[in-house]
Amino acid sequence: MLDSTFFIEKGIIILVVFAVTMLFAMYSTWAERKVAAFLQDRVGPNRAGFGGLLQPLADGLKLFSKEEFFPNTPNRFLFIVGPAIAMSTALMTSAVLPWGDKLVIFGKEVILQATDIDVALLYVFGVISVGVYGIMIGGWASNNKFSLMGAVRASSQMISYEVAMGLSIIALLMMTGTLSLKEISMQQSEWRWNVLYQPVSFLIFLICAFAETNRTPFDLAECESELIGGYHTEYSSMKMGFYLFAEYANMFISSAILAILFFGGYNYPGMQWMTENVGVNAANVLGIIALLIKICCFIFFYMWVRWTIPRFRYDQLMNLGWRILIPLAIINIMITGVCILAFK
C-alpha cells in the first residue's frame, strides 16, 4: 500500500541526496583548487570567505552572469540538450546508492536509499553509458572541429573503458552473488571489505573510473594544449557551468560507487557493537559519516592523481584499455572462479 508517508519519506531522501551531491560537487571545485595549490607549494584561493570557502559561490555567480553564446550551428536544440544530459545522468546514478542501513524515526524504519532495486549495479552502468551522449551531442552540436575531436575521443575512450569496467565488476559479482548495492554493502559488514578479496578488480575499476569521469590522466576529451577546451570549447555561461559541474558530480558519484563496492560502503569496524549498545540511529549516522569520509578520501585521491600524472597519449590510452586492463580483468575472473570452486 503506497501511502503518503512513503512519498514524503522518499521525497526527503531524494532531496537530501540531491542537495548533498550538489554541495559536494560545489566544494569539489574549491577542494580541487586547494589541493592543486598545496601540491604545488602554493596556498590556493583564500580571499572569498574564510579559507576561500565562498569561492564556489563567486564562481557560480560569475558563470551565471556571463554572456550566453551560441555558435553558428544548425543544431541549437542539441547544443542545449548536451549539457542537460551530462548533468542529469551525473545526478541520476545517486538514486540507487545506499547511504546507510536504516534509521528509526517515530517508530518507523526508514531505509536510507532512494530506491533499492535488485539490478542497481546494472542501472548504474546503464546511466554511466548514457553519460557519453552528453559529451558527444555537445561536441557535435558545437559545429567546431576541436569540439568534435574532443567528443570523438571522449566517446571512444569511455566506450572502451566500459568493457574493462564491466569485466572487473563481474569478478566481484561472482563473489557477492547479487547486483543490489544494498546487499553488497550489507555483505561487507565490519572488516569484510571487498577490496581485501578483490584487489585486482578494484584496481581495474579505479583506473576505469578515472577514464569514465574524464579525469587526468585520461582527460583527453578536454586537453587544453591540443583541443583548446575539447567538447566544451564553444560553451559559455551556465551551459559551460553544467559541464564542469557534471564532471564534479560524476566524481562524487563514482567515488561513492567505489566506496560502496570495494570499501564497505557505510560499514565501519564496530558498527554491530554500536547498533546493539548505543542504538540503531547513532550507529547509522556514524555509518553515513563513514561513507562520506570514504568518498572524500577518493575525491582527494582523484585530485592527487590529477596533479601528479601527466596526460596519457591516445595510443597509450587505448593500449592500456584494450591490451592490458581487459586481459587482466578476464584473468581475474578466471582466478576468482577457481577460488570460488576450490573454497566452497
Binding site: F38, L39, D41, W304, V305, T308, L320
Partner: peptide, 26 residues
C-alpha cells in the same frame, strides 16, 4: 608498461609537497 610503480613514486613525491611549507607571500 603497467606504469603502476612510476605512478606510486610520483604520488609519493607530490604528497610530500602537500605538507611542505608554502612559499606564497600574501
Amino acid at each position: 608498461s603497467l606504469y603502476l610503480v612510476a605512478i606510486v613514486k610520483g604520488l609519493m613525491i607530490t604528497i610530500k609537497h602537500f605538507f611542505r611549507k608554502k612559499v606564497t607571500i600574501h
